[in-house]
Nucleic acid binder design. Structure first.
Lengths: 142, 142
DNA sequence: CTAAATGCAAATTGTTTGCAGAAAC
DNA sequence: GTTTCTGCAAACAATTTGCATTTAG
């Protein structure tokens, strides 16, 4: 939040009501929220804001490196607060739960593959899909 | 192609001109084609087919397990001929080139992560993004 | 003949943009 | 007072669907 205001000032941009509401709600709610969900939450606090401002503010936060945008296998993007180290995701196909995980080994392996291919990596994505523990227990489909 | 006709017959579906044209062009062209590109190619051979039939046939081929649908970091989906073993992708952010690779180690690691998380995997995806060898050489940006 | 497939145009979904009025600084 | 922001509605891109007509079996 403080960081956000600082970035805004640096760029000669303004702190406004809607912008602050959106950022605050986003940072409070935390991880893996969709624009639609964020819109609904922000409207509870400020019923005036429109989708356009939601998307514009999300883009702004992204440009400020304060959020990551993710595209899982749904139609919509999801947004998460930017943290220090890279992590990957497991997504439950039944309940939508997202579990984050880190693996140094996978990171290392990616680098080794990249150098084998002779390419220069900027980023990467690894996503596991399936049933989470709970859904696995509920659904007797093996 | 033969496999496709067989699957159609099994399901009581019909072999038609447009359907065959689309499937043939798809299998000939091979990997990582978009619906738009496929549409353009098919139109060269049969100028009557519309986008709807392209998408419907792609879906059909997918349901028959004859193609995989991929969603890289572009707006559109890309389609590839279904092969036996799983592979992952590197995508050049400059020229769009897609390089496939396989890594048993990564597959193993994914399984180990899944069991650590207590989840049941159905599928997974690993994508590397960056500059391919050629683009890396051309662009002096490090 | 009858069920399935086609092509077109219209609908849908998630996101972006143009613009006139409303805040910030 | 400018410049940047806002909300709205319209535009967008990729894909899907409804429907009247055509075609395969």
């Amino acid at each position: 939040m403080l960081a956000f205001h600082e970035r805004l000032r640096e760029r000669g941009l303004k702190s406004t009501g809607p912008r602050d509401d959106i950022a605050r709600v986003f940072f409070e709610l935390g991880r893996h929220i969709s624009a639609e969900e964020l819109y609904a939450e922000v409207r509870k606090v400020n019923p005036h804001v429109g989708y356009a401002t939601i998307y514009r503010t999300l883009k702004l936060l992204k440009d400020c490196n304060l959020l990551f945008e993710r595209h899982f296998e749904e139609g919509q993007a999801r947004y998460e607060v930017a943290g220090e180290h890279h992590h990957d995701h497991f997504i439950c196909e039944n309940c939508g739960r997202i579990i984050e995980f880190e693996s140094d080994e996978i990171e290392r392996m990616q680098d080794s593959i990249a150098s084998k291919l002779g390419v220069l990596l900027t980023h990467h994505k690894m996503e596991l899909y399936g049933l989470c523990g709970e859904c696995r227990a509920k659904k007797p489909s093996r």
